[in-house]
């Protein structure tokens, strides 16, 4: 049996918002160490991985591993009906065909229970190898969101170049071109670690979708290495993360 209580529905809302634009259905795997989710988007261009350790919950109990096949649009509707500061408890039996979500207002004067039908998803899991990234850049998540938004006005593709001097985002389209450069700051809000310089091209539409996770974290980590997918990671406090992997584009 699973019983997991978030002190605030707001966290669950932010997580659902960060997932639902990129995947429509996914399996949430619950074990005694926490919750994990991994899914590719429909086009198999990107992959999203969520991890929440038990420390992120006000209460967490999972006697046996449970896999919950979720329709994220439905889950979004349910969490939307709750207030951000409500507590929410997720409950599922061992071989559950439904997930119970119980919301409780701050002063416990209002409770709302929802049963969500679970899906029987036959989902592949991919093994993500440990990677020594050539470039690791950390910046405010709001800055990254702004850059992705601005780049996508110019072109479908965004070129990311990273050297010891800084990280550069470029887009080149019918309207013209855009270049945004960031360098390491003494304030420490932007850090750039470079073993070897790299230039790769990515679909801006996906980068933009990843920035739906911005409310989850003030910081974002961008990791690049030759001929491997880009990693964009949003930490969730110190007990979890949401990671997006995006396959690079290659010249025809």
């Amino acid at each position: 049996m699973l019983e997991a209580r978030f002190g605030e529905t707001l966290l669950l809302k932010k997580i659902v918002d960060a997932l639902k634009e990129i995947i429509s259905q996914s399996t949430l795997d619950c074990t005694e160490t926490g919750m994990q989710l991994q899914s590719m988007d429909n086009s198999h261009v990107s992959l999203v991985a969520l991890s929440l350790q038990t420390e992120g919950f006000e209460k967490y109990r999972c006697d046996r591993n449970v896999s919950l096949g979720l329709d994220l649009k439905s889950l979004a509707k349910v969490v939307k009906s709750a207030s951000g500061d409500d507590a929410v408890t997720l409950t599922a039996a061992d071989k559950a065909d439904k997930l119970l979500l119980s919301f409780e207002s701050d002063n416990k004067s209002r409770t709302a229970d929802y049963e969500l039908k679970l899906l029987n998803l036959d989902q592949d899991h991919l093994g993500i190898p440990e990677t020594n990234y050539a470039c690791i850049v950390q910046m405010p998540s709001s800055e990254f969101a702004r850059i992705c938004r601005d780049m996508s006005m110019f072109s479908e593709s965004v070129v990311i170049s990273c050297t010891k001097q800084g990280i550069k985002f470029s887009a080149n389209g019918d309207m013209g071109s855009a270049n945004i450069k960031l360098s390491d700051t003494s304030k420490g809000d932007i850090t750039i670690d470079v073993d070897e310089p790299i230039t790769q091209s990515f679909a801006g539409r996906y980068l933009n979708t990843f920035t739906r996770a911005t409310p989850l974290s003030d910081r974002v980590k961008i990791c690049l290495a030759p001929d491997v997918p880009l990693l964009v990671e949003y930490p969730i406090e110190d007990y979890g993360y949401i990671r997006y992997y995006l396959a690079p584009k290659v010249d025809e």
């Binding site: 093994g127 992997y245 584009k249």
Partner: peptide, 12 residues
């Protein structure tokens, strides 16, 4: 050309 993500990661 857009590559696929599953070309990089092995199925478990």
């Amino acid at each position: 050309m857009q590559r696929n993500i599953d070309a990089f990661f092995k199925r478990l």
